[in-house]
């Protein structure tokens, strides 16, 4: 694969995951580099969501799940039982396919994370809320109704709010599982622009079904198939000159 000097945020070694007897991730070795956008593509059911959820250990509570291998996040194996998940999730934020604003005000949605992590000073919270909303280009749209219910926002605004909510804990990595698949093209475009903006400061891992999206926003692309990581390469390389036949078949639309 690619030799880089960039700092690794995640270093995943021989990751295996089973849901009961379903071997959903098979011997995954996967480095994720700082301040890059890594896209994950592959057909439905190949384990994309499972993989990304393992990066902040969201699926350890799924009944019947078994995880083996190492996920080293900044040098520490987070699969160890004594990992501080509160601290990890402060560092590694997540955005889901369905925007899930809490049934609270816009302000409270963004302030939720900082409050959980012990920020209580009003002025500090105000500052975080403003910066986070500015970070997702939502500030201008909502600054006059910060205390209105978040559920009153449009779908695209809700998803940007969810990204702002993830930014509010000052993470260094943001995981996104098909963040635009429920959105219209204009909202999708806004989120894609946002991703390009955010990668100046954050490491981003994004699952997408849309190969054009992967090509537009990502630096590296990984192709998964039936729980295996088939290929991981510079996005340009992977799409122009894939080294594996199965990758080529997938990106040229021969299956999937």
């Amino acid at each position: 694969m690619i030799a880089t000097q960039e700092k690794e945020v995640f270093d995943i070694r021989e990751l295996n995951l089973w849901y009961d007897t379903n071997h959903a991730l098979k011997d995954i070795d996967f480095p994720i580099h700082e301040k890059e956008v890594t896209a994950i593509i592959g057909p439905s059911g190949c384990g994309k969501s499972t993989f990304i959820k393992t990066l902040n250990v969201m699926n350890r509570t799924v009944p019947g799940v078994r995880i083996q291998g190492e996920i080293n996040y900044r040098g520490k194996n987070i699969l160890r039982p004594k990992t501080d998940l509160v601290e990890l999730r402060k560092q590694v934020g997540m955005v889901f396919q369905q925007a899930t604003p809490f049934p609270k005000s816009i302000y409270e949605n963004v302030a939720y994370g900082p409050k959980i992590h012990g920020v209580h000073k009003k002025s500090k919270l105000n500052e975080i809320v403003e910066n986070s909303l500015k970070g997702v280009a939502l500030w201008e749209e909502v600054k006059d109704r910060l205390h209105a219910p978040a559920l009153g926002l449009s779908g695209g605004q809700q998803q940007r709010l969810c990204i702002a909510r993830a930014l509010a804990t000052e993470p260094d990595t943001i995981l996104m599982d098909e963040p635009t698949s429920a959105l219209d093209p204009i909202s999708t475009m806004k989120i894609e622009e946002l991703i390009l903006e955010l990668k100046q400061k954050y490491t981003i891992v994004i699952v997408t079904h849309n190969m054009q999206q992967a090509a537009r926003v990502s630096d590296k692309t990984a192709f998964f198939l039936m729980g295996e990581l088939i290929e991981l390469d510079e996005t340009k390389m992977l799409f122009s000159n894939p080294s594996d036949q199965r990758t080529e078949d997938y990106i040229t639309g021969r299956f999937g």
């Binding site: 509160v86 601290e87 809490f102 959980i116 804990t169």
Partner: peptide, 23 residues
């Protein structure tokens, strides 16, 4: 309640009790 609420709260680092009481 939408199942996503629980995941969303957990993904921010909330404990189960924080999720229950605050969300």
């Amino acid at each position: 309640l939408p199942k996503g609420l629980r995941d969303a709260s957990a993904a921010i680092g909330a404990t189960r009790w924080q999720t229950i009481s605050r969300i």
